[in-house]
Amino acid sequence: MSHTRYGVYFTPRAGPFADAGAAWLGWDIATGTPVGSPDDAVTKRPRRYGFHGTIKPPFRLAEDTGVADLQEALSALSARIAPVALDGLTLSRIGSFIALTPTGDARDLAHLAATVVKELDAFRAPPTEADLAKRHQSRLTPMQKENLARWGYPYVMEAFKFHMTLSGPLPSEMIGKVLADANTHFGDIPPRPFPIDSLTLVGERDGDMFEELHRYTLSGK
């Protein structure tokens, strides 16, 4: 199957947390199949990306690179990167959407993400004029604009904030209920501490849903 873009995500390993996230969104990124009976009003927008935390945002491959080259580079990089652990995850409101976000010190994870963005940048094709125009419609800070120009995405490096998105933009009157529903759904399932011990290469199916292509264990010291 052909893929239009690739990205590097954190996705939970198979188990209750991965199952809960897939059922909430309605898409199992690990198997590339629909699951559950999701609420389209809440989860339709993030569903195509699967249950994940972005490490290197989706990108088109540069003309002189291939998927095999990207896989080889990510495998080698993962062997050099040490796993990190968060204190845990908590449900949060971010603007008009909700997500699971880290508790405690997340600086090691931010450093990990910056390393992956930088080390794999040679595989990223430059953004198109349409891509840039779409991003510039957002209210970006000067730093985020610099990131967009340098790395093809505004929310990387110092602007990176790890999150596992659970909704699209919600009307203010819905947010409280959705947070309560998510709290019931996930409960105490997310482990504490929360390990980030692998990276997942994902691909976008012909401009549609994202699916897992390969998981790489972080085995550096």
Score class of each variant (00 low, 15 high):
14 A>H: 11
114 A>W: 12
10 F>G: 10
68 A>V: 07
101 T>E: 15
205 R>F: 10
126 P>L: 03
36 G>I: 02
34 P>E: 10
12 P>F: 07
15 G>K: 10
59 F>L: 00
92 S>H: 13
134 K>H: 11
167 S>M: 03
197 D>Y: 07
57 P>K: 09
90 T>I: 11
180 A>M: 11
159 A>K: 02
186 F>N: 04
145 K>M: 03
210 F>Y: 13
4 T>L: 01
150 R>V: 04
162 F>H: 13
141 T>P: 06
12 P>Q: 10
186 F>V: 14
187 G>Q: 01
146 E>H: 08
122 A>N: 12
204 E>A: 14
92 S>M: 09
197 D>C: 05
136 H>T: 02
177 K>T: 07
95 G>S: 06
208 D>F: 11
213 L>C: 03
140 L>E: 08
67 V>D: 08
194 F>H: 12
172 S>I: 06
83 P>R: 04
181 D>C: 04
134 K>D: 13
45 R>E: 12
123 F>K: 09
145 K>A: 03
207 G>R: 08
143 M>G: 08
124 R>A: 05
26 G>Q: 08
169 P>Q: 02
185 H>N: 12
108 D>T: 01
143 M>F: 14
84 V>D: 01
42 V>L: 14
214 H>G: 11
102 P>H: 14
6 Y>I: 09
95 G>T: 05
51 F>A: 11
124 R>P: 06
141 T>C: 00
59 F>M: 07
137 Q>M: 00
51 F>Y: 07
49 Y>T: 10
60 R>E: 13
170 L>E: 05
170 L>Y: 04
190 P>G: 11
165 T>P: 06
71 Q>L: 04
185 H>W: 13
21 G>M: 07
177 K>L: 07
50 G>D: 13
75 S>G: 05
154 P>K: 06
115 T>W: 01
202 V>T: 12
189 I>S: 08
103 T>M: 01
100 L>H: 15
69 D>L: 00
97 F>L: 11
205 R>P: 08
65 T>R: 15
133 A>R: 15
117 V>I: 06
102 P>I: 10
52 H>I: 15
219 S>W: 00
117 V>M: 01
207 G>C: 09
100 L>N: 13
23 A>W: 10
68 A>M: 03
13 R>P: 07
43 T>E: 12
161 K>I: 03
39 D>I: 10
108 D>Y: 06
92 S>K: 09
75 S>P: 00
140 L>R: 04
133 A>G: 08
110 A>Y: 03
202 V>H: 04
158 E>P: 01
56 K>N: 14
122 A>Q: 12
210 F>T: 14
1 M>I: 13
201 L>G: 10
27 W>K: 08
137 Q>P: 00
56 K>M: 02
140 L>A: 04
23 A>Q: 14
4 T>N: 15
92 S>E: 12
